[in-house]
């Protein structure tokens, strides 16, 4: 690639539009990526757990509702979902609500991205939670009921504590997915990390350096998320318990 002009110092140059250095663009993008991912992840965990639990209750219509929820959010691409939240929702709501969304909502790209990503991910979390609860031996529910727990107490004190421990590995994957999927928010104008990298490339034409740094940053963030979940798994591990042991 003899014609390619390598220049790692590009990050320390001032941007074409003046004022900042390019590396600040990248850091800004990184900050938005992390903020979006973390907030969306927390909401997704809460929503997804509720839906996952609902899908395992013996109340038939409630379980079906949960299944429908999951199917809806799993069968439409994330970018399409974001467009629906960002472009379609404000137009189909009643006037006052729609106008508020269009004009008065602060940081509209950020909040739309977070909500959209949260709902998308919650469906996948719900799958994991349902799977986790179904893996538990049937006798656990019986034992919980037998000591006089109500059904919600059985979920709260017996089933969910173990189910969540069991699903930490697949949840770790989902956490990493949230971080990667936050990049889709660039399509609704949010200047997260990938958007900043593209923008920087557009101005400087130093694609290699730009995209390499973006790549490294994603790898680092994903790795950190992975380690965080591993730490959590260590902390909540039940002494002596081996999965599948009876």
């Amino acid at each position: 690639m003899s014609t390619y002009n390598w220049d790692w110092n590009i990050f320390f140059e001032e941007v074409a539009t003046g004022g900042e250095k390019y590396y600040q663009w990248m850091l800004s993008g990184l900050a938005w990526t992390i903020a979006t991912a973390m907030l969306a992840w927390i909401i997704a965990l809460i929503l997804g757990s509720i839906v996952g639990v609902i899908r395992t209750t013996p109340i038939k219509w409630l379980a079906i509702l949960g299944d429908i929820y999951v199917e809806i959010f799993r069968n439409v691409p994330l970018i399409v979902q974001m467009f629906l939240w960002f472009f379609v929702l404000p137009d189909i709501l009643p006037e006052t609500a729609g106008n508020w969304l269009k004009q008065d909502l602060p940081l509209p790209e950020f909040f739309t991205a977070v909500i959209s990503l949260a709902f998308f991910t919650s469906a996948r979390v719900a799958e994991q939670v349902k799977a986790g609860v179904m893996t538990l031996p049937r006798g656990q529910k019986s034992a919980g009921l037998a000591v006089g727990f109500t059904l919600s107490q059985v979920y709260l004190y017996v089933l969910l504590p173990m189910a969540f421990r069991i699903i930490i590995p697949p949840l770790t994957s989902e956490f990493m997915n949230v971080i990667k999927n936050s990049s889709v928010a660039l399509t609704i104008g949010m200047l997260e990390l990938t958007a900043q990298a593209r923008q920087m490339n557009d101005y400087t034409f130093h694609g290699f350096e730009t995209f390499t740094v973006a790549t490294l940053l994603y790898i680092i963030v994903c790795f950190a998320a992975n380690r965080l979940m591993a730490l959590i798994e260590c902390q909540v591990r039940v002494p002596g318990y081996v999965r599948g042991d009876r």
């Binding site: 690639m1 390619y4 990049s183 660039l186 994603y218 790795f223």
Partner: peptide, 25 residues
């Protein structure tokens, strides 16, 4: 592991940028 740690959007940008250069090379 690399492909699983970075967003697809970034991969798309990478190759959009890279393929013409590789072709030139």
């Amino acid at each position: 592991n690399l492909m699983r740690s970075i967003p697809l959007v970034l991969v798309i940008f990478w190759f959009y940028f890279l393929v013409p250069l590789v072709g030139q090379w």
